[in-house]
């Protein structure tokens, strides 16, 4: 587990398991489970989005491409796509979470969003942060970008 912090505030602390892979910008985590991958929103992603009010995903059976949306999410003050870190086909949607997206705010790693059958997994994972050092390096750069844009409300 990698703990990333910004300032001293209790809620500006984000846990990122080091055995997961991450989409660098949309903060989608990927867990490799045999021949399938499970995906959800990482701790920083759910924090940045705020309390989620709506979530939509493509249906089961839909082919998705790395870097392209497999769905979108919306909170009171934010809306954005969820872009997939890997290519493949959606084999299951967590409908309970999609219907009650604030579940992601409660437990963002437990409440996954889609299960995907990947089509080029090894190649797709190659450029995704994974392991403590890579995750820390990626997140530090990410936080700096937010700081530079004066978007990080952490003391």
């Amino acid at each position: 587990m990698v703990l990333i912090t910004a300032g001293t505030k209790e809620d500006c602390r984000w846990d990122l398991p080091d055995d997961l892979y991450y989409h660098r910008k949309d903060h989608i985590w990927v867990s490799v489970e045999g021949s399938l991958v499970r995906m959800g929103l990482d701790a920083f992603g759910q924090w940045a989005a705020g309390t989620l009010a709506q979530m939509r995903t493509f249906p089961v059976g839909r082919a998705i491409r790395k870097g392209h949306a497999f769905g979108n999410l919306e909170s009171g003050k934010f809306i954005g796509p969820m872009r997939s870190p890997v290519s493949g086909k959606i084999v299951e949607v967590n409908t309970e979470v999609v219907s009650n997206p604030s579940m992601v705010n409660d437990d963002n790693y437990g409440n996954w969003i889609v299960l995907v059958e990947p089509s080029s997994l090894e190649e797709d994972l190659a450029d995704l942060p994974n392991g403590a050092a890579a995750i820390r390096e990626w997140m530090e750069a990410e936080l700096q970008e937010f700081r530079d844009k004066d978007l990080l409300n952490c003391d």
Binding site: W47, A48, G50, K77, F78, I79, N153, D155
Partner: peptide
Amino acid sequence: LAAAMTLGLRPGIFYRGA
């Protein structure tokens, strides 16, 4: 909520950096 976010009392970042 927007003021709470601005003061860091609620998490979240405004869409398009508002």
